[in-house]
Computed example of a mutant assay.
Amino acid sequence: MPGRQIIIYDKRADVIAKHKVGWWEIWNASRARSGEPPLKQDDPTESRIWRVEVRAGKHYLKERWNIRTWSDLDNRLGDMFAASIEAIRHAQPTRDSNRSRWPNSELWNRVVDEVQTDLFEMRQWADPDLVKSVQKDALNDLLARQMLGLMVNRAALRGVQFPQLRAFALSIGDELAREVSNSPSRIGDKLARTVNRYDLGI
Score class of each variant (00 low, 15 high):
residue 63 E to L: 14
residue 68 R to T: 10
residue 106 E to P: 07
residue 145 R to C: 09
residue 55 R to Y: 00
residue 4 R to A: 09
residue 47 S to L: 02
residue 10 D to H: 07
residue 77 L to C: 11
residue 119 L to M: 14
residue 65 W to Q: 06
residue 153 N to T: 09
residue 16 I to P: 10
residue 86 E to P: 01
residue 179 E to F: 03
residue 97 S to V: 10
residue 16 I to Q: 14
residue 94 T to R: 06
residue 12 R to F: 07
residue 48 R to K: 13
residue 36 E to I: 00
residue 81 F to R: 07
residue 146 Q to S: 05
residue 175 E to T: 07
residue 175 E to S: 11
residue 56 A to H: 11
residue 60 Y to D: 15
residue 138 A to H: 04
residue 200 L to R: 02
residue 75 N to D: 13
residue 142 L to Q: 11
residue 69 T to S: 15
residue 22 G to P: 01
residue 182 N to T: 00
residue 28 N to K: 09
residue 150 L to N: 09
residue 168 F to T: 04
residue 95 R to Q: 09
residue 191 L to R: 14
residue 169 A to E: 04
residue 192 A to D: 13
residue 189 D to G: 09
residue 190 K to Q: 13
residue 183 S to T: 00
residue 140 N to W: 06
residue 150 L to H: 08
residue 54 V to D: 00
residue 82 A to W: 11
residue 48 R to M: 13
residue 173 G to A: 11
residue 76 R to D: 00
residue 84 S to T: 14
residue 202 I to D: 10
residue 94 T to F: 03
residue 92 Q to E: 15
residue 68 R to M: 10
residue 181 S to A: 13
residue 160 V to W: 00
residue 30 S to H: 12
residue 182 N to F: 05
residue 13 A to M: 13
residue 106 E to L: 11
residue 169 A to F: 14
residue 33 R to G: 09
residue 49 I to W: 02
residue 187 I to R: 10
residue 71 S to Y: 05
residue 202 I to M: 11
residue 166 R to T: 11
residue 149 G to A: 10
residue 118 D to H: 08
residue 45 T to I: 08
residue 13 A to F: 09
residue 168 F to I: 04
residue 35 G to R: 06
residue 145 R to E: 12
residue 178 R to G: 00
residue 186 R to S: 12
residue 176 L to H: 04
residue 29 A to C: 03
residue 97 S to K: 13
residue 113 D to I: 01
residue 106 E to H: 11
residue 52 V to Y: 01
residue 52 V to Q: 02
residue 3 G to K: 08
residue 7 I to G: 00
residue 145 R to Q: 13
residue 28 N to D: 15
residue 61 L to H: 07
residue 2 P to N: 12
residue 3 G to H: 05
residue 100 S to T: 10
residue 125 W to V: 00
residue 170 L to C: 11
residue 78 G to Y: 04
residue 47 S to G: 02
residue 192 A to H: 10
residue 166 R to H: 11
residue 87 A to H: 12
residue 93 P to K: 05
residue 92 Q to K: 15
residue 151 M to D: 04
residue 46 E to D: 12
residue 129 D to R: 15
residue 93 P to N: 02
residue 9 Y to C: 03
residue 142 L to A: 12
residue 91 A to Y: 05
residue 102 W to M: 08
residue 132 K to W: 02
residue 191 L to Q: 10
residue 110 R to N: 10
residue 109 N to C: 12
residue 191 L to I: 15
residue 103 P to E: 05
residue 87 A to R: 13
residue 111 V to F: 01
residue 96 D to P: 05
residue 60 Y to N: 14
residue 105 S to V: 06
residue 152 V to T: 04
residue 160 V to F: 02
residue 25 E to R: 12
residue 186 R to K: 11
residue 177 A to D: 08
residue 132 K to C: 01
residue 93 P to H: 03
residue 137 D to A: 12
residue 52 V to F: 03
residue 179 E to G: 02
residue 123 R to T: 14
residue 9 Y to M: 01
residue 137 D to P: 01
residue 4 R to Q: 12
residue 129 D to T: 08
residue 47 S to E: 00
residue 135 Q to M: 14
residue 43 D to C: 06
residue 59 H to G: 12
residue 82 A to G: 09
residue 134 V to K: 03
residue 16 I to C: 06
residue 52 V to H: 03
residue 171 S to G: 15
residue 38 P to G: 07
residue 36 E to L: 15
residue 61 L to W: 07
